[in-house]
Each structure stands twice: as structure tokens, then as C-alpha cells.
Design a protein around this nucleic acid. Structure first.
Lengths: 237, 237
DNA sequence: GCCAATAATCATCAACTGATGAATAAATTC
DNA sequence: GAATTTATTCATCAGTTGATGATTATTGGC
């Protein structure tokens, strides 16, 4: 008696054009993003990704050659979108503000596209932001990858900040951005640390709460470091 | 002709007490710290660690049971040291400042032990801090690990900040700390991003430069968020 | 001086890893 | 409509992985 324990026969060869199947390449990228964002490059196997995307592992190599190629493709896909949005947002603010340009305005314009995408609750963008957070804090290759992907937009941000901070020193400007970058990426990494630490008072998923606080906090730091010491604290003797 | 290609015979069994060998357990932890800090939990194999420590892989399992056990031991070893230093530093400042306590003073007291250890150039502490940075931005288990290891000291910090910020809202306080945590850990992660972005103007290894800027930047943000809006910026109409 | 506990290496395992050449089938080109 | 290109699965490989039971040698307690 032949029991049908044979595994489901999967069609081989190029798929029918009429198959309204979603683009396989995108499906692989979605699955990879999901896994990489949760476990990082080394914590994921190509098999896990292939399984979630419901394709053979060979297909990943067909499209992306190597595991690293797949990772890079994931990292770049949404970067193009968010970089354009941030760049446009800064330009729009600088144009509308004119000579009334402020540090907080620039930073808010820079942050809004990210925080709004995060606030929609779209899990795929959440995952992507968590991935950025990990890469930003990854030694050896994280700095290189972040730079390659985001330096253009960051220089755009810094140019706008220079307009709001006449005669600012380059050093103060870059260090201030560094603190901004750290605060932003930890916020996007969604580890639940703040929920636990605050015993529920703050929720790491509450991007509206973050949106109201982040720009003022960071702008205040920028002004303290980057403006000539008009507001130097008087020491109590 | 017997050519001596046999590999070096290694002594078996418990080592002689007279062997002035460094404590094997510590040697394994050093090697593990070195690797985990650079490549994260999944990017390291127990073989690599064993090889650097010049011991058999079985010895890692003898002392730490599992790879995760080894990782946790690495993470906890220096945490105890740095937590005590930070806690003591905050206490000393609060005591010496009395009623003249300031936000910047508290934050500076909190940061100094870390930045000083980083400034000595001790590679092992550098590695450890880079490890914290990665864990802080690791989804799934990073928040839990950070909380378990550091929440005590952070609550100590937040208690001190409450003294400098009467009637502060809990929510503002915790979000402000979150931004501090992100800025600090990215700074400690030493990815070289800032060096590249600033084209050499800032160096991520220049902890003296960081030490001068971080407390003012962060304290300024805290005051902006946590103080009743006495200094609310007047909007230009 | 015997014996249990300790600290180490050896030898090996079953499972997993990234990758690839071959096979297959549809689409496109000419 | 034949030939080439594209997209997919199949079958498999050589190397790596975390882990462990067996073995060996020394220490420390009685």
C-alpha cells in the first residue's frame, strides 16, 4: 500500500506569466528584511529566508549571488525612498522658513519623514529602521555601510543647519549630529528597553510621543554646543 | 623516514599548580570579549574563541555550558565594575553639590567613569563598550539583557536627576534618558562613522573631545524637555 | 597514601551552512 | 517554429557548527 507521504510536487522551470504571483525578488527581500532586522547578518541563514519566502535557496543566489549581496540589497531598497523624503523635507522647510530658519525647524524637517513612516505601524518599515539601528552600532563594517548609504543626506542636513547656525565650528556640528544619530537609531531599534525601564510609563512603539520630544531635545543640545556661548551657565561659587 | 609533522603534543589533565599560567577562565573571557564585541553573538564561533584563548573548545563548555552562557558571562564581568563606579560617582556629586545640584552635574558624574575608562585607551574596555552598544540596539533580546544588567544604576541616575528637576514628569524624564542612552552607546560603538562623515574633523577615538561635549549637549536637552516651559522659544510671527 | 573532585584535552557527532551545477519549463527573440 | 534567454527547483557538496562523553593528569581532603 502506497501511502502518499511524498512531499508536495512543486512546479519547476520558469513560472507562467499568467500566474499573478508577487514578484519573487521582492518577496525574498521582504523575508530577508524581516529576518535580518531581528537577528542581524550573522543570526540569519539563507535557508530561513528562503523558507519564509517559500522559494528554493538557489533562487536567492540566482538574484543576489551571496548572502552579503542579499543583505546589501535589503539595506539599499528603502534607503533610496527615505533619503529622498528627508532631503525634500529639509529643502521645503529651508525654502518656507527663509531668514526665520531655526535649528529645531531643520531637525524637525529631517526627522518627520522617518517618524511618520514609523508611526503608520507598517511592520516592514519598523523592521527596516531596526536594521539601520543595528548597522549603525556594528563595528568593523557598520560605519562603512552607514556612510555609503546615508552620508549624502546627512551632508544635506548639515548644510541646512549651517544656515541656522552662522559661524558654527565644524567640529561642534559633527559631534552634535553624532549624538542625534545615536538617539534616533536607538529609538528606532524598538528593543523594548524603555518600556521595561519606565515600567510602562513610556512605550517604545509610541512614535507620536517621540515625535513631540525628539526635535526639541536634540535642537537644544545643538544650540548649546554650536552657538557662541551667549547662554553660558553661571557657576555658583 | 619519519618526518615530524605530528602536531605539538599538548599536556592533558589538570595543570600543575606551579604553572604560572593565567587563569584559564579569564583568558577565555578576554578572548570571547574580543570576538563578541567585533562581530556580535552570532558572528562568532566557539572555535574562534577557543583558538584565541589557546584552549580546547570543550573547556569553554566546561566553564560556561553554552555559547550563550559564555556571552552572558562576558557581558556581566565588567558591568559590575562600571556600575559601581557610576553609582559612586553620582552619590559623590549629589553629596558635594547639595542644593546647588544641576542636571549637567548629575549627567557629567554619570558619564565620567565611562568616558575616563574609554580615554585610557585600554582596548579591552573599548571592546566591552562596543559590545554594550550592539546589545543596546539588538531587538528580541537586547532590551531584556540591557535591563537586567543596567536598570539598577539607571534608576539611581534618574533619582538623582529628579532632585535637580523638581516636579518633573516621569514621561519626560524617561524619554530624555532614552535619548542619552542612544547618544552614549553610539559614541562607544566606535564604528568610525563620524570620522568618515566629517572627513577627519572628528575622531571617534577622541574621548576627551566627547567628554567635553556630551554632558552639556544632553543636559541641555533634558532641561528643555523636563523643565516647566520657562524658556519657551518665542515664535517669530 | 588512597580517593574523590577538579581541570584540562581528545575524538567525534549529527545537524547545519553557503554555495553551485544540472535539470526543467516558460517566455522572448528572430 | 527553432533557438536563446530567463526563472525556477533539485540534488548535493565540502566545510563548519555547538556540543558531549571518554580520557588523562593533578590537587586536596581525610
Amino acid at each position: 500500500m502506497k501511502v502518499s507521504t511524498k512531499r508536495r510536487k512543486v512546479r519547476r522551470g520558469r513560472p507562467l506569466k499568467t500566474d499573478a504571483a508577487p514578484d519573487m525578488r521582492e518577496r525574498i527581500l521582504d523575508a530577508a528584511e524581516d529576518h535580518f532586522s531581528r537577528h542581524g547578518f550573522w543570526g540569519v541563514t539563507v535557508r530561513e529566508v528562503a523558507q519564509e519566502a517559500k522559494v528554493d535557496t538557489a533562487l536567492l543566489h540566482y538574484y543576489f549571488n551571496t548572502k552579503r549581496g542579499l543583505f546589501d540589497a535589503v539595506f539599499e531598497r528603502r534607503a533610496e525612498i527615505i533619503n529622498k523624503e528627508r532631503s525634500d523635507s529639509i529643502d521645503a522647510y529651508v525654502k518656507s522658513a527663509g531668514s526665520a530658519i531655526t535649528v529645531e525647524g531643520v531637525i524637525d524637517a529631517f526627522l518627520q519623514p522617518i517618524l511618520q513612516r514609523a508611526a503608520t505601524g507598517d511592520q516592514r518599515w519598523h523592521n527596516y529602521f531596526a536594521l539601520i539601528a543595528q548597522v549603525n552600532n556594528t563595528p568593523v563594517w557598520g560605519g562603512e555601510t552607514m556612510g555609503r548609504t546615508f552620508d549624502n543626506v546627512i551632508h544635506h542636513l548639515i548644510d541646512a543647519l549651517r544656515k541656522a547656525l552662522p559661524d558654527v565650528s565644524e567640529e561642534e556640528l559633527y559631534w552634535s549630529y553624532h549624538f542625534l544619530s545615536g538617539a534616533l537609531t536607538l529609538t528606532l531599534s524598538q528593543t523594548g528597553r524603555i518600556d521595561r525601564l519606565s515600567e510602562g510609563v513610556c512605550k517604545s512603539s509610541d512614535f507620536e510621543a517621540i515625535g513631540r520630544r525628539m526635535a526639541p531635545f536634540i535642537a537644544s543640545g545643538f544650540e548649546r554646543l554650536c552657538k557662541p556661548q551667549t547662554a553660558k551657565r553661571k557657576k555658583i561659587p
